[in-house]
Amino acid sequence: MTQTQLRFGILGCANIVRKVSRSMLSSPNITISAIGSRSLEKAIAFASECQFPESTKLYGSYGAVLDDPDVDAVYIPLPSSLHLHWAVLAAQKKKHVLLDKPVALNVGELDVILAACEASGVQFMDATMWMHHPRTAHMKEVLSDEQRFGQLTMVHSVFTHMSDEYFLKNDVRVKPDLDALGALGDNGWYAIRAILWANDYELPNTVTAFRDPVYNDAGVLLKCGGSLNWYKNGKVATFYYSFLSNICMDIMVHGTKGNLRVHDFVIPFNEKVGSFYAVSDSKWTERSLGCDPEPSEVKVATDVPQEALMLREFGRLVAGVRSGEAKPETKWAVISRKTLLVIDAVMASINNGFVPVEVIY
Rank of each mutant, 00 (worst) to 15 (best):
M1T: 11
T2K: 14
G9V: 07
G9M: 07
A14W: 02
N15T: 12
R22G: 12
P28H: 05
T31N: 08
I32A: 09
S39T: 15
S39A: 10
S39P: 03
K42C: 08
A43I: 03
C50M: 13
Q51T: 12
Q51I: 11
S55E: 10
Y62C: 03
A64C: 08
V65H: 00
P69C: 04
P69S: 06
V88F: 00
A90R: 06
V97H: 10
K101W: 05
A104D: 03
C117K: 07
M131L: 15
P134N: 02
P134T: 05
E141H: 08
L152W: 00
S157G: 07
H161T: 03
D164C: 04
E165D: 15
R173V: 14
G182H: 05
L184C: 09
W197A: 03
N199F: 09
N199A: 15
Y201K: 00
R211A: 13
P213S: 08
G225S: 08
K232V: 09
F243S: 04
I247T: 13
D250G: 04
M252H: 04
N259F: 01
L260T: 01
V262S: 13
F265A: 03
V266E: 05
G274H: 00
F276G: 01
E286R: 13
R287T: 14
R287L: 13
R287Y: 14
V300K: 01
V304N: 09
G315I: 08
S323T: 04
P328M: 01
S336F: 03
I343S: 11
I350A: 06
G353R: 05
Y361E: 15
